[in-house]
Design a protein around this nucleic acid. Sequence first.
DNA 1: TGAGTAACGAACCAGTTCGTACATTAAGTG
DNA 2: CACTTAATGTACGAACTGGTTCGTTACTCA
Lengths: 221, 221
Amino acid sequence: MTTVEEPARREGRIRDAARTKAEILAVATEEFARAGYTGARVDEIAARTRTTKRMIYYYFGGKEQLFTAVLERSYAVIRHAERDLDVEHLDPVAAIRRLAGLTFDHHEAHPDFIRLVSIENIHDAEHITASETLSSLNSPAIDVIHRILEAGRAEGLFTADVDAVDLHAMISSFCFFRVSNRHTFGALFGRDLTAADRREHYRTMLGDMVIAYLTAGRPAE
Amino acid sequence: MTTVEEPARREGRIRDAARTKAEILAVATEEFARAGYTGARVDEIAARTRTTKRMIYYYFGGKEQLFTAVLERSYAVIRHAERDLDVEHLDPVAAIRRLAGLTFDHHEAHPDFIRLVSIENIHDAEHITASETLSSLNSPAIDVIHRILEAGRAEGLFTADVDAVDLHAMISSFCFFRVSNRHTFGALFGRDLTAADRREHYRTMLGDMVIAYLTAGRPAE
DNA sequence: TGAGTAACGAACCAGTTCGTACATTAAGTG
DNA sequence: CACTTAATGTACGAACTGGTTCGTTACTCA
């Protein structure tokens, strides 16, 4: 152990700034999502890394900036997924249904992201507000929805003149709530909203709801 | 100050167990909602009370039990409001619309409760699960929805055979999200979902959405 | 090749935080 | 009025926590 090196084990372990930084971010994402901002421990994040706490401060500056970096990376993933939506070749009804379905899938696939957003809301979105990267981040999804809605109205399919941002809020709220509130909802109503065998049911329900809203004759107002 | 009593000031200050307990609960509710479970400080709660930290441990046992007590009291308020729903004298469509409206109003009126539920979800609802009071708490709202749906189906008004719990999830998700995620949503999309001048717009939108879903001819399935 | 620098680690520190031991006092009760 | 007990306040401590200090090592480029 003194003179003999263990090449396989030590490989790539030393002097890799990008890797160290990425590893800290990955572990921090898990830890913040698990325990909340205040509940997350810098020491714990460091311990689960192949480096030390010193490096967290070296690369990120502090706990607050680390959390902001975690949020920035997480939102970047979403933005990336939204850029690949590719639904505008479909007819408006199918396009909206597919968009809602993909939003549904994405929320289900990223529960850690949902938790981070919940946590950030508990802290009044102060990190997002302070981050130039995030506050100037336009969602491609809004543009997609906007164009689909216009096409749908042009074809006389959609009677409701909904705003794209509002529709996005409507779709997101169901997808988000289903994941974010699954624990309290399950405990209080005895129903697991994220149970695998009800997945298709809720996915369809969301699509039905949105399409029904967009295609229904507006009620008296 | 030594012999002369100040009746108005000292009135009801000493030896009032019920009052001390209630005051601790009220302050703790604010503090937990403000800072989260881990972020809330027992010392801070005590300081904002007319009593000391000793009393928190005397009456509640510890931070964890105090948080559970806060949740129990908060949910009791909801349950109480739900018992006074009184919408079943209306026709099914009006009843659902009114129920959705009242749910909407209740969420808007109790942002602290929303935050507590978000916080409890971050902690996987472990306090609710452990509390007998809460885990055995049936929501009157579900029964109300159930009966309205049956009436609506009997009258041939509602074509969709939605489950009451699912419809409750659908209504709640929008009401909840609008309050819980207002900070991140506002920061990212530049739209304040809780702005007073858009309140009626969203209230109507929710009602339209639910009714459209319930009355629409079901899509191919 | 050797000096400069980016990357890294161990140990430490000052302030905080939950919880408790101990002392005290108001209010019933016989 | 003694006497018991529920209710309350003070002071303290052990463990934790974010952040820092100081020193070391691998890489690179003149």
